[in-house]
Amino acid sequence: MKTFLQLFPVELKLFLREPVAIFFTLVFPFIPLLVFGTIFGNSDAIPGFRVIDIYVPAVISMVIAYVGLMGIPIAVSEYREQGVLKRFRASPLRLSHLVAAHIGVQFLLLAVSGVLLTVVSRLIFNIRLVVDPFAIALTILLCCVPIFTIGFAVVGLCKGPRTTLAAGGCVFFLMLFTSGSAIPRRQFPPWLREVTDYVPLSHVVDLMTGVWVNQPSPNQMTSIVVLIGVSLAAFAVVMLSFRWT
């Protein structure tokens, strides 16, 4: 525990010294929020909510996807490549603690990002807020499980940081544009909506949006089952492919 308490601030400082990671988690999400919000924000989305009112959970899903599919995989892959994991294996530290501290830092950043996005949307677009903060925080945590596990599967299947970056980037952008986190799926033609039901991140966006408007979607149970299934499948891949060194 003593080591974990020491690891957490070190991991946080290391993250804050990495401009790219800060940009993608704390700055980048505002670009789609502001652009999309200005252009389409005022049209009606679902009864009682405008498009911008329900866009924040979609953008938070985007941040979860970035952190899980690119941020953590690249960091873990670099740790492995640069011999950091090996160095820690030659010490009393458990590598799981290192990864736990790293993920803990990412959760903290997700929280900061979520609060900033909400506050800015409220100030600029005066969004309608009916969300229960605890419910959404819990939902975010649960949604991280499948996405982060996919990220670790990517690290397991890729050799170096470059391949990990490329593979993680592919999965990230594919999910970003097909899940409704960048473009709402309500705008999709019905066939595309059906196809994108198979994208794990779609269920993250649907679940989060349901909690955000305090009206669980009729497919909530399906989404939960899909995300649990994805977690288990990705976990199996991690167990088969992931190597510390």
Binding site: V10, K13, L14, R17, E18, Q82, K86, A90, S91
Partner: peptide
């Protein structure tokens, strides 16, 4: 106590 041949610390620490 161990010193490895490669360096193995995070570049920003």
């Amino acid at each position: 106590g161990v010193q490895l041949q490669e360096n193995g610390l995070h570049k920003n620490i």
